[in-house]
Computed example of a mutant assay.
Amino acid sequence: MANLLDGKVAIITGGASGIGQASVEAFVDHGAKVIIGDIQDELGESLAKKLGDSARYVHADVTNEDDVAGLVDAAVESYGKLDVMFNNAGAPSAPSPIVDVSTEYLDKALALFVRSVVLGHKYAARQFKKQATGGSIISTSSLAGLQGGWGDVGYSTAKAAVPSIARVATIELGKFGIRSNVIAPGIIVTPIFTRYAGLSEEDSGKFLERLEEKSKDEQPLGRTGVPNDIAGPAVFLASDLSSFISGVTIPVDGGSSSVTFNRFDAIFGEVAAEMEAGWVSARS
């Protein structure tokens, strides 16, 4: 089914790479115009150039309120309106156990994964109300926000807040035709897993291949996810096909949330140990 987003204008934060990049490309394929919000300028500019008039890159730190407001302004200035806000931005970090967690780390996690989502709702909803057109807000959570064992305390706590934001938004904004829904990805293998470690491109690829190989048998569907597995549901939630869906969190996880135990943290540690044991060629 083509052109599900024909005529729509969207903002996708974290749109320069990984899930965000796949979503930008899918939205454009379905007829949308997209503002790519990110801090990875080279990647963002390159993607916008590839997509031509259908996309524009805007440097935006989503923890900064002025930058989030600026994304909405850019959408209106470039394409005349806004129909969809996809709060997807994220960044890698070194996980911290509770007994060692710092307030600095907690504050950064909450700013990136919670404050940014609230700000995305705030400014998108203001524009939707001004237009009197309604709109769709999509936010990325994680299985770490729904179950234990998928992440550390900072990441898991922050991601657990995202569905609550969507529920509050559904109550407050529904009367204006504004919907808010959440996607909770499972294991989606992207370079975000290795970015904080400073690995070379070659070793990053090796790490991800090994992580995927060791993780796939733990998944009910027998494979790990890829960014397009998230882009598809995002297109659906942005489209009019989902016009009566709001306040919902959709796990997109190959069935992982249907089981009571997962070994992903252990597998990640095993692969990291293998890496340190000798097959790392160089660090960038």
Rank of each mutant, 00 (worst) to 15 (best):
193 F>M: 10
205 G>E: 14
151 G>S: 12
127 Q>D: 09
1 M>T: 13
236 F>Y: 15
101 V>D: 00
137 I>A: 03
246 S>W: 03
230 I>R: 07
275 M>H: 11
135 G>W: 06
76 V>E: 15
76 V>N: 10
271 V>H: 11
76 V>Q: 12
20 G>K: 01
260 T>M: 03
149 G>P: 03
11 I>R: 13
191 P>L: 06
203 D>A: 04
157 T>I: 01
234 A>C: 10
4 L>P: 07
212 E>T: 09
151 G>K: 06
10 A>S: 15
212 E>V: 01
42 E>V: 13
63 T>I: 12
61 D>M: 08
253 D>Q: 09
87 N>L: 00
104 E>P: 03
283 R>E: 08
139 S>C: 05
246 S>E: 03
284 S>T: 11
78 S>R: 11
179 R>P: 00
117 V>H: 10
123 Y>G: 03
99 V>F: 10
170 T>N: 09
140 T>E: 08
28 V>Q: 09
103 T>C: 00
179 R>I: 03
194 T>N: 08
180 S>F: 08
158 A>L: 05
102 S>P: 00
249 T>D: 14
103 T>K: 12
132 A>Y: 02
25 E>G: 09
261 F>M: 01
164 S>D: 06
253 D>H: 12
108 K>R: 14
277 A>P: 04
35 I>S: 09
163 P>C: 10
93 S>L: 02
18 G>M: 05
258 S>C: 00
267 I>Y: 13
1 M>C: 10
199 L>N: 05
209 E>P: 00
